[in-house]
């Protein structure tokens, strides 16, 4: 299995507070990796480091190395725009742009200078198909994306992330604002997405992690307590804390 990310001695700080502590592990390419843990354990902080979204937080600081395909994401002089194009992200709350469905998906291409109408049409259709939304919206691409339901909006956000042809898609609790039916539609997508992309999901739901992921990392108080195959984590975890968490003794 190819390695997508190699995380080496990563420590993250918001001002004085130590949010990530000595995190070390590797994430395989074209797998689904779930990150679980109680609220405030650093799992969102961690995933937001992978495409440098934490740069938006002025007080955030990071030490250590985060290698993607062998080069450090945090290397001085790295082009953040290039990183974010390769490492897409889908957020907790569906956040479509207040534009048409078509323009939402095409936006990522337009900002990178692609204007050709037929290319855009192609990519929009392909991306919406991959996000299992094409059938729902193919006759109303010009309508505002804000008219869609929450679950459809989230699938639109996935299509939008796919459109720029990233290698990795990060999901930061993608289903926490959705109803069970929408959730299961998005969960179904993960197993298809991993054929082409490396998928990393932060989730509050252990059932979700167990259902969709190949590997699971368990974070607590900023530390990576355990990282292993999902099957092993949920059947024979090697750490007592992991066992307590997945059996619902806390969190």
């Amino acid at each position: 299995m190819k390695t997508a990310f190699k995380i080496k001695d990563v420590n993250g700080y918001y001002g004085e507070s130590h949010a990530l502590k000595d995190v070390n592990f590797e994430i395989g390419a074209k797998t689904v990796t779930a990150i679980i843990g109680p609220s405030g354990c650093g799992k969102s902080t961690f995933i937001r480091c992978l495409n440098r979204m934490n740069d938006l937080v002025p007080s955030f600081r990071l030490t250590g190395e985060m290698l993607h395909n062998g080069t450090d994401i945090y290397q001085k002089g790295r082009d953040i725009i290039e990183i974010r194009r390769k490492i897409g992200m889908v957020f907790q709350k569906p956040n479509p742009f207040p534009k048409s469905i078509y323009e939402n998906v095409a936006y990522g291409l337009r900002i990178h200078g692609i204007k050709n109408k037929s290319t855009l049409d192609d990519v929009v259709e392909k991306s919406l198909k991959k996000a299992a939304l094409w059938k729902d919206v193919k006759d109303r691409l010009k309508e505002s994306a804000l008219m869609l339901s929450g679950g459809q909006q989230q699938r639109l956000c996935i299509a939008r992330a796919i459109a720029t042809e990233p290698e990795v898609i990060l999901f930061d609790e993608p289903c926490s604002a959705l109803d069970p039916i929408s959730t299961s539609k998005i969960e179904d997508l993960f197993s298809e997405l991993k054929n082409e992309y490396t998928v990393i999901i932060v989730t509050h739901s252990m059932q979700q992690a167990a259902r969709v992921s190949d590997f699971t990392g368990f974070f607590m108080m900023g530390e990576l307590i355990e990282f292993d195959e999902t099957k092993k984590i949920f059947t024979t975890p090697s750490n007592k804390l992991t066992e307590d968490y997945i059996t619902g003794r806390f969190g």
Partner: peptide
């Protein structure tokens, strides 16, 4: 966030 995450400046 959505726009920046897509690689927009």
């Amino acid at each position: 966030e959505a726009s920046l995450a897509l690689g927009a400046s």
